[in-house]
Simulated assay, not measured.
Amino acid sequence: MAHLVCITVDVDNTSAMLARGYDGRAMLSRGEFGVVGTSRLLKLFAKHEMKCTWFVPGQTLVSFPDSMAPVVADGHELAVHGWTHRQPIAMSEAEEEDELIRAGDEIAKFQGKRPIGYRAPSWEPSWATTRLLAANGFVYDSSLMADDYTPYYPREGDVHPVDGPLQRGLPGSVLEIPVSPTLDDFSAFEIMRGPDGSVLPGLRSGRDVLENWLNDFLWMRQELAKGVMTLVVHPHVIGRGHRMIFLETLILKMKEAGALFSTMAEAAERFSPRVDG
């Protein structure tokens, strides 16, 4: 089996800023740059004949439909990334399910078929998330980190005592295609200041990130018979000129090393017989 690479696109645009209470004009303009970045990513993916998965909040979809329509027209997969970009861990179960259903309905209307994938905003699912996904017909999630290259079925019903051993529940029915902050452009490149004055420094050199991400793929190819490497990019982050050069260089080097690029739905199909198209 080929070693898969999924370049996934989190189309946050202004939704992440709004969910964190940032409503200043300059900050929201940084998010709106995602429209420019989306156009650049589509051009790059078309050049390399790649289909990718775009995790889109409902707020992004209804706010920027003209930007998202070409994503569907080019044959990419849309998946749910919440309705707002609020973290499920901070919601009630009813609020979380309402956002999940509302976003799924909007995507189904937009692309003509129901989405089968989900990623929690900020990778902060609740303990109810995978259960809610299963109840609402989702096939895969991409929010957790208990593995790196091997999709797995997260357990339901774990108990985590502070002073005792983990009490394991049973595997659920939603396939996890894991993620990592080490393979995320936001962690590497974006600079943000928190309400408490803390700063996410970002602004790393693309050369360093290229070396790290490529070596992650090379290790997977060397050590594992099969696997899925999940990269996470955001149009408003990766869409800057020098980062687009970095991304294309990465694609070319991974192709030379034997990578097969795929959507998350295609990756899930290879690992899970539950995907029926």
Rank of each mutant, 00 (worst) to 15 (best):
G206R: 12
G37A: 10
G206K: 09
A108N: 03
A268F: 04
R86K: 15
V139C: 09
E99G: 05
P181S: 10
K253V: 14
L250P: 09
L210W: 07
C52P: 01
V237D: 01
V35K: 07
E32S: 13
E49I: 09
A257L: 06
A69W: 01
F64G: 08
E256R: 14
G58C: 13
R274F: 03
G164T: 04
T53G: 03
A225P: 14
P115F: 08
G75K: 03
H3M: 12
I89P: 12
R270H: 07
D148F: 04
S15H: 09
F261I: 11
P88D: 08
P154V: 00
M91D: 06
H160Y: 15
D184H: 08
V199D: 02
G104N: 10
G157W: 02
Y22P: 10
T263A: 02
E211F: 14
L100P: 07
D163I: 05
T8D: 00
G258F: 04
K113R: 14
E156P: 01
G112S: 04
E97Y: 07
A135E: 13
Y140K: 11
A268T: 03
E99F: 13
F64W: 05
R119M: 06
E156R: 11
E190N: 11
S92G: 13
I89Q: 09
D163E: 14
V62N: 05
H81Q: 07
L218W: 12
W83M: 14
S262V: 08
V11Q: 05
V209D: 05
E190G: 00
R155H: 11
A16Q: 01
I107Y: 02
G227P: 09
T150W: 03
Y140P: 12
I89G: 13
I191A: 11
G239A: 01
M229L: 15
V179W: 04
V199L: 08
T60C: 07
A257T: 09
C6D: 05
C52R: 14
G137M: 10
R86I: 06
R240A: 04
N136F: 10
L144G: 08
Q167M: 10
D141H: 02
E97S: 13
L200Y: 02
G117Q: 06
A265V: 09
P181E: 09
I238Q: 00
E269G: 14
A128E: 10
A134E: 09
V80D: 14
